[in-house]
Design a protein around this nucleic acid. Structure first.
Lengths: 191, 191
DNA sequence: CGCGTAATTGAAAAGTATCAACACTGGTGG
DNA sequence: CCACCAGTGTTGATACTTTTCAATTACGCG
């Protein structure tokens, strides 16, 4: 459930000649800092090197909805760059992070001139579509108990890594429901 | 809610010299026919010219979940082609359709050699990500009544175009809930 | 120890699902 | 031409799940 893309990150890191530090700037990001603000102009693409971020939407009523958790190799800002639109989601560091940052012009240039880079971005987008589709479908057609059980199977240390507050936003439910369901799972010995 | 991409379709149709009939085959599809089967090999990409299709996942328990309705200009099969995986969803014609079909090799070739085509595909994927994200977020954080109200605002002829059965699958709810909520909206005069 | 904040829990209300019965429609074959 | 059938749509009664909201407990820290 924390998405990564080591193939892409390894590729960038292994080809310092093609992607030198002068063009792919390495940045440190503090926990809590926003890599992208919602409904703002995005002028750089960031590839996550270390750390975890949450990508989320906030609604008019003040509730957040977390779309994905991003880990190493995942890319943020590319959707806005391609669509040439304001950001539709926000991205915020959940841990201290380091990212590799490309300016708009550099990103576009690599997309057009570097076929391998281009192909990585295509695959990356296809992966995001597929991830969202399958997750959406699953949560929509399963009960909260089933969804949580599966998440805990896939990632046993889930509750240590992700705060309950974020988990609630990720599932689109209330704290109350999460607590009740977790308690049920514990009583059933599934956890 | 029925997604289209006229920019892409117009581009293909307006450049018959670059995309001749010999390479971009035009096909007629009957209502009910599956353009893509779930968990099968996909060996062609189809661009919808006319008609509407549903893109859906079927779960183990027999229920369908509709991800998107595709109209003119939308593309199916490109995710599987890029990821080099079996299809994760099925696509089925809801009306008689015509599509423009590219073989796998032809699609890859255009992606690598035709920058304009490549850019259209990038934008298309970015659009799919954004659409799924915003829809997912909305339905997850709003009640059925709110979701239906918004859908009917965006598309007043919704109920004439999409069968209730499909609407139910799209929303991940039961027939009963849809009927009750529609009745409420009518009584409130919102419809 | 006591205070403020965050996390948990209980009870009532709202929202949905389940189940079962029944109506409508468009074929199909006797 | 009618009987039948399968698929789709409608509705009522009831049970279940989740939210809401307020009350309570737990925790960190001066």
């Amino acid at each position: 459930m924390i998405r990564t893309n080591t193939a892409f990150l390894d590729f960038i890191l292994a080809n310092q000649d093609r992607y030198p530090k002068s063009l792919v700037q390495e940045l440190s990001i503090e926990k809590g800092h926003k890599l992208i603000r919602q409904r703002s102009l995005v002028n750089a693409v960031s590839i996550i090197n270390e750390g975890i971020a949450k990508c989320y939407l906030y609604q008019d009523d003040g509730t957040d909805f977390i779309l994905e958790f991003f880990g190493p190799g995942e890319v943020v800002g590319e959707i806005e760059m391609l669509n040439n639109e304001f950001s539709f989601a926000a991205v915020e560091a959940l841990t201290p992070m380091t990212v590799l940052r490309l300016t708009r012009d550099r990103f576009i240039e690599l997309l057009t001139k570097d076929p391998v880079f281009n192909n990585h971005v295509l695959k990356l987008l296809a992966g995001k579509v597929k991830y969202k589709a399958t997750r959406f479908s699953f949560t929509q057609t399963h009960t909260l108990e089933q969804t949580l059980t599966k998440m805990l199977e896939d990632m046993p240390d889930l509750l240590e890594v992700i705060s309950k507050k974020d988990l609630v936003s990720y599932l689109g439910i209330t704290k109350r429901s999460l607590n009740r369901t977790l308690k049920n799972l514990k009583e059933q010995g599934h956890i």
